[in-house]
């Protein structure tokens, strides 16, 4: 067992992966007012695409990563178009069930193509472990921290500074008014799914580099944890998802090291229950008054 600092850094590493995934949940919720339960499985698809491009096609890492991210972005758009868009005016329960069904579909397809046996995968991140005094940080964690930081800063700038980002915020507030401005709502929703899925792909890549094993249910646990992170931070809030994810990772890592590794998940969910008891809308959630 390393130092507290080491546990903290490891927690930040896992947490920033959760945060990347949570961003997809929260952005899609903000704009389409739905929980996309198939979002976690995009991570798994990303992992398999990376595996195929790296080990089967022997592509260079950069190309493999680019293909993985693009593939997942297109998959996200496609899922929205065929499964969720026809249900835009349907009750939210119908959309929720469809999303769960989509999750099972993706897992079953992976099972069909790659079967249930886990595939060993050698990390594509080739960075030396860094040692600072008695604190060691693995290369994967270091790269994870840097990559997620870049993703989050880029995303924040995109949302706050660009025209497309403002349009996204406008659509998430009021679709009809956004249309009156000339904003194509369908295209904005597609863009949101693409960005969310691309981030999930990045998370998937970082995740398999960390755990070095791929199976069809790989996305389920990080998916649900990231969902918890999004709710913890306040679903619909972009900074909330980032904070929620990182916080979750740190709590997990600390409780694993100092309390009990068996109780980790219980502690994580306990924190969620506590936060929601005190602030039902999450840490940075808005108590928005519904318009009539």
């Amino acid at each position: 067992m390393g130092s507290v600092l080491e546990q903290l850094i490891n927690g930040l590493g896992t947490g920033s992966i959760y945060a990347l995934i949570a961003l997809g949940y929260t952005m899609v919720y903000g704009i389409a007012k739905m929980i996309n339960f198939a979002h976690g499985d995009i991570i798994m698809v990303g992992a398999y695409v990376l595996y195929v491009t790296v080990t089967q096609f022997k592509l260079p890492v950069i190309a493999a990563v680019a293909i993985t991210v693009t593939f997942c972005a297109v998959l996200g758009i496609t899922i929205e178009k065929i499964a969720y868009k026809p249900l835009r005016k349907a009750p939210s329960l119908a959309v929720l069930i469809t999303a769960i069904g989509m999750s099972f579909l993706l897992q079953s397809l992976a099972l069909l193509i790659f079967n249930a046996n886990p595939i060993a995968f050698k990390s594509i991140i080739d960075v030396q472990t860094v040692k600072l005094g008695n604190t060691t940080v693995s290369g994967v964690t270091l790269v994870t921290l840097i990559v997620t930081m870049i993703c989050m800063i880029t995303l924040s700038l995109f949302i706050s500074k660009t025209k497309a980002g403002s349009a996204m915020r406008a659509v998430s507030e009021d679709k009809a008014a956004a249309q009156l401005m000339g904003i194509n709502v369908n295209r904005t929703i597609s863009m949101t799914f693409a960005i969310g899925s691309a981030l999930a792909a990045v998370a998937g890549i970082l995740f398999v580099c960390q755990y070095q094993s791929i199976k069809p249910t790989l996305g389920a646990l990080p998916g649900i944890k990231a969902f918890v992170a999004a709710v913890l931070g306040g679903i619909g809030s972009v900074p909330g998802a980032m904070i929620g994810g990182v916080l979750l990772g740190v709590i997990e890592s600390i409780s694993k090291a100092y309390i009990s590794s068996e109780l980790t998940d219980a502690i994580v969910f306990g924190v969620l229950v506590l936060v929601l008891l005190v602030k039902p809308s999450g840490l940075l959630g808005k108590n928005r008054i519904e318009k009539v």
């Binding site: 403002s166 915020r169 406008a170 507030e173 009021d174 009809a176 008014a177 009156l180 808005k286 318009k291």
Partner: peptide, 9 residues
């Protein structure tokens, strides 16, 4: 009607 400005922008 009701102005429908984007309150968070």
């Amino acid at each position: 009607e009701g102005r429908r400005i984007f309150a968070e922008l």
